[in-house]
């Protein structure tokens, strides 16, 4: 009988030892909420380039994935919203980064479709707008666009808690795109604030089953930045 191969790695550099130029990398998070901070630093340190970044915002305010824009490691991006990300807006208008803007619901559903084996779907989002130009459409109750799955070579994900099998639990609204991306990539690498033993996350409370996770490590030094802190008086 073969021994079960462990998914647990010591840190970001061992979990991401095989990064390559030209990779398509999905990165979870909404703005800076729930982003894989340690893995992004590792991609930065590795110096790999010509990356396609697939993420809702590609960082914000010079932080998160925007660090990889500053170092010109990203040559293409698939995202839905670039407001608040001056690095991306500038590099897009200058033609340095090729950007595919996708309606956010279509973006999340295309990622979900990739993980779930759905080959395509129709949605009204974007019909009759510039993003519909040259696209396959079909009339249902209204005109809809045909959309195909969005997959990646690597997904880098952050969860609050994960066990050694890879079962994940996300805190509050930090879940966003992360479980979808974990299902849509050939290789899924997860960093957690708390690495726990199998069984410590109750079965009913598992947000993403561990079978979607290839590697997991305990992260460190989280900034957990808040973009706009608004408080009641």
């Amino acid at each position: 009988m073969k021994a079960v191969k462990t998914k647990v790695f010591d840190d970001a550099s061992s979990a991401l030892h095989d990064l390559k130029d030209g990779m398509r990398i999905m990165s979870g998070g909404f703005g800076l909420c729930g982003i894989p901070e340690n893995s992004i630093e590792q991609v930065l340190a590795s110096g790999v380039k010509d990356l396609t970044a697939i993420s809702n915002n590609i960082g914000n305010s010079g932080r998160g994935l925007a660090k990889l824009l500053k170092t010109k490691q990203i040559s293409a991006a698939v995202c839905s919203y670039v407001g608040g990300n001056p690095d991306l807006e500038q590099q897009m208008l200058a033609g340095e980064v090729e950007v595919e803007l996708v309606p956010q619901g279509t973006f999340s559903e295309r990622i979900r479709a990739a993980g779930m084996g759905i080959r395509g779907f129709y949605t009204p989002a974007g019909a009759g707008t510039p993003i519909a130009e040259g696209r396959e459409t079909r009339m249902f109750d209204r005109e809809c666009l045909f959309e195909v799955p969005l997959e990646a070579d690597l997904a880098i994900i952050k969860a609050e808690k994960g066990d050694r099998y890879g079962n994940l639990w996300f805190k509050e609204a930090a879940r966003n795109f992360s479980p979808l991306m974990a299902m849509a990539a050939s290789l899924t690498v997860v960093e957690v604030e708390q690495l726990v033993e199998v069984g410590e996350i109750e079965a009913e409370s598992v947000h993403l089953p561990g079978l979607f996770v290839d590697r997991i490590y305990q992260g460190s030094n989280y900034a957990n930045d808040i973009e706009f802190e608004l408080l009641s008086e």
Partner: peptide
């Protein structure tokens, strides 16, 4: 066009749904 791009975010989905 040529001046400002914020991206559509969720707006294109919201207006139909």
């Amino acid at each position: 066009p040529g001046k400002k791009v914020t991206g559509m975010g969720g707006a294109m989905d919201l207006v139909h749904g």
